[in-house]
């Protein structure tokens, strides 16, 4: 091994005449080779960047950034109005804001989950990953974490903008901080649920178009089925059924957990009944996320390298 000092004493060909490129031939690499944690972190960060189009073509930046802008716009407007005209409280709570974002988030994950995983399958870049020291399980962990982080940023940043607005407008600090933390818990749960569902669907279809369509369809259908069940149950007076109807929709599921855990008024009318309801919503969420993780791990155990 050479020490840095040794290297300095050896003549460096391109150190002399300025502007002259010398072909110094092939250089061996004897620097450090980092381990498992670094590989996980690298794949996580590069996937997260890719979810907003960074490191990809200019065209692929348009969709995620435009959607992200639309998600932030109402929050900016609310914050500006709050500061310009004053007010005692936010016109909507943080979980309510999350609920209104659900459509935009669905479109966003439908666009980005296929680029996070289908792309590697379709263009068979997986063979390059798996012929490297990266473990297959770690690939899944990094992709899942990156997708979750991307959705968390998508929904979390508007909430932070709202929060900043309330602070500038001198609304009660501790009350707002508590509220925004509840909102961020909701954002994290939404990210885990939507990230998991969309990645599982995207990992099945190598074709990007199919992936986008399938994810949008599944999320929309789930929402409308939940809405229909809820509506019918309300009409026919079945209180218990209507309270559990939102389990069927990812957005309603997360809202139910928030309502149960933090004793909030339910955004969509009926809160899940007491402790049992809270437990049901919570366990469905946990089961759903772990099922997605399990399916993904199983899927990538079977991906061949050729």
């Amino acid at each position: 091994m050479q020490t840095p000092a040794d290297r300095d004493t050896t003549p460096v060909p391109n150190g002399g005449a300025a502007g002259v490129i010398h072909d110094i031939g092939y250089q061996r690499y004897d620097g450090s080779r980092l381990g498992r944690g670094y590989l996980l972190r690298t794949l996580f960060l590069d996937t997260l960047r890719g979810c907003y189009g960074f490191g990809r073509s200019a065209k692929s930046k348009i969709m995620p950034l435009v959607l992200f802008g639309f998600g932030c716009l109402p929050a900016i407007i609310i914050a500006v109005i709050l500061n310009a005209f004053g007010g005692e409280e936010l016109p909507m709570t943080y979980p309510e804001y999350l609920w209104t974002l659900s459509m935009l988030v669905s479109i966003y994950v439908a666009g980005q989950a296929p680029q996070a995983v289908s792309r590697d399958l379709r263009f068979r870049a997986t063979s390059l990953y798996f012929s490297r020291p990266l473990r297959r399980g770690d690939y899944v962990v990094a992709k899942f974490a990156a997708m979750t982080a991307a959705v968390l940023i998508f929904t979390g940043v508007p909430m932070l903008i709202l929060y900043l607005g309330t602070l500038l407008a001198k609304l009660p600090f501790w009350e707002q901080t508590g509220d925004v933390l509840v909102g961020l818990v909701g954002a994290l749960l939404t990210a885990l649920v939507l990230g998991g569902i969309s990645l599982v669907i995207a990992a099945i279809t190598p074709r990007r178009g199919f992936g986008v369509a399938a994810i949008i369809t599944v999320l929309l259908v789930a929402n409308s089925v939940a809405g229909v069940v809820f509506g019918v149950a309300q009409e026919t007076g079945r209180e218990t059924l209507s309270a559990y109807a939102w389990v069927l929709s990812p957005t309603g599921l997360v809202d139910g957990v928030l309502v149960g855990l933090f004793d909030l008024p339910a955004v969509n009318g009926v809160s899940p009944p007491g402790t049992t309801g809270c437990l049901v919503y919570l366990s469905v969420t946990v089961l759903l996320v772990s099922a997605c993780a399990g399916l993904l791990l199983g899927r990538y155990r079977k991906v061949s390298v050729s």
């Binding site: 080779r33 590989l39 690298t42 590069d46 390059l128 990953y129 490297r132």
Partner: peptide, 9 residues
């Protein structure tokens, strides 16, 4: 990206 995935800083 692939170089980093091989462990290079």
């Amino acid at each position: 990206h692939m170089a980093r995935m091989s462990g290079l800083p």
